[in-house]
Amino acid sequence: MIEFVTGALLLLGAFFLIVAAVGLLRMPDLFMRMSTSTKAAVLCVGFVLAGGGVYFADLAVTTKVITVVVFVGLTAPVAAHMIGRAAYLEGVSLWEGTLFDELKGKYDPATHDPGSPAASSPQDGPGTQGIPGPEAPPVRKGTSNPRRPSKPR
């Protein structure tokens, strides 16, 4: 019985790992890749190590498993957030079908300061260029200021 539960947990973990890897390969955008791979990877580590904890049924092993899973669950979002923020500030291009860039204009391109009043003026809201979203504000001519040119990589 324990072996069936362990095998099922291992198979679930392997499935989520495959999902993470395929999402990492097939998604069109860095941020989508990061989204899929982070969530699926945390699930995969949780399932596989829970399988180990169920199989050994030992206090020391269970403690280690809980430690690893809690650590990964706490640090994976932090790491993904830092990588995503650094990549966005560096100018990694979004997917061409992206409808909303809610950070557009929120950062001063020179100082990377999120709260500077010149950069967060309301006419630089989302959707001022490109495909406007469903509730995008009307585009004012002459004030649409692209935050930064997309650097060729």
Binding site: L10, G13, A14, L17, A20, A21, L24, L30, R33, M34, S37, T38, A41, C44, V45, V48, L49, G51, G52, V68, V72, A76, A79, A80, I83, G84, A86, A87, E90, V92
Partner: peptide
């Protein structure tokens, strides 16, 4: 950043392989 994300997934893969 893409390579860093790939390395993170590789680290998670190695952790799962170690669990197995």
């Amino acid at each position: 950043a893409d390579r860093v994300v790939a390395l993170e997934v590789i680290g998670v893969t190695v952790m799962c392989i170690l669990g197995v």
